[in-house]
């Protein structure tokens, strides 16, 4: 190569485009980019689960009505559809809001503010986990829905009950096609009720689609696991903030921003879990 080359300053012909190298084309540090792409891949994991849910639901002849299944409240209230889970959703939204506040305080380098709002976020996360624990306990302990057995069935025709179950259903109660029922357990024996259809046939309730129970516990469990790990990471990062570790760093409170992204993602997933399990 020509040694007599006159060396001149680098001339980058593609202009000063952000893509010309030596720059961050997305104006985001590698850490934030990696968090975004991790969340993207995690979104695909959840998509895999939720798409499996949809597929199994499509393949299933009946599906329990969520308003019937999720209708208990703490304190022994029953038949209050969706109220508890709406509360859970609110808890998660509020914790997301407090997280945004923590990030904003981080931009102002306000250590105390960050710690305060993160603490609230952690409390929100714990509250959500508590709610979920209560919900699971009710479903498993009270209604005996487990990952293997789903006592919530759906009527495929209209009819009238011939006997009662000792709870809400009495002999002579009528029901419509599409309504969900719950098969109760009496002294460790399942007691499916017999009923008479409109054509006069005598039939018995069947168990509901197994996939419902399995998918519910699996997907909400996986989401709950994300919440739990989020809470743990929030706790660690909050302690780091409080110790003043990040104020010495060049990128200051970027860590708070990153865990914030993760936390909002957990909220985002809940939007879809809420949609498919509780609303549709």
């Amino acid at each position: 190569m020509a040694a007599e080359h006159t060396l001149h300053a680098p001339e980058i012909h593609e202009g000063d485009s952000v893509w010309s190298g030596g720059k961050e084309p997305f104006k985001a540090s590698y850490g934030k980019l990696m968090m975004w792409y991790f969340l993207l891949s995690d979104a695909f994991t959840f998509a895999g689960f939720l798409i499996s849910y949809g597929t199994l639901r499509f393949s299933s002849p009946t599906w329990p009505v969520p308003d019937f299944v999720f209708s208990s409240l703490p304190g022994g209230f029953t038949h209050k559809p969706l109220i508890f889970v709406t509360f859970m959703t609110f808890v998660l939204i509020v914790s997301s809001v407090t997280m945004v506040r923590a990030v904003q305080e981080g931009h102002r380098y306000n250590k105390k503010g960050v710690v305060f709002w993160m603490l609230l976020t952690i409390l929100g996360g714990l509250c959500f986990l508590g709610c979920q624990a209560w919900e699971w306990t009710t479903l498993m302990g009270g209604e005996h829905m487990t990952i293997r057995r789903n006592p919530f069935g759906t009527h495929i025709e209209s009819g009238v009950y011939l006997e009662g179950d000792g709870h809400d259903i009495k002999a002579g109660d009528t029901f419509e096609k599409g309504h969900t029922y719950l098969i109760h357990k009496h002294e460790d024996v399942w007691k499916p009720l017999s009923y008479k259809t409109e054509t006069g046939e005598i039939k018995e309730q069947q168990f509901g689609p197994k996939a419902f129970g399995a998918l519910f516990f699996f997907i909400t469990g996986f989401h709950g696991f994300h919440v739990l790990s989020g809470v743990i990471f929030l706790l660690i990062i909050m302690l780091n903030v409080a110790s003043g570790l990040y104020s010495q760093r060049k990128n200051h409170y970027e860590m708070v921003e990153k865990i914030g992204l993760y936390w909002h993602f957990v909220d985002l997933v809940w939007v879809f879990v809420f949609l498919v399990f509780y609303l549709l």
């Binding site: 104006k27 985001a28 997301s96 945004v100 914030g260 985002l268």
Partner: peptide
Amino acid sequence: SFYKAFYIVFEFMHMRYEVPGL
């Protein structure tokens, strides 16, 4: 639900303020 998801991503996760490429 999709509106909620959009709102969380664009406001809470600050996607609105990122460059279009990201």
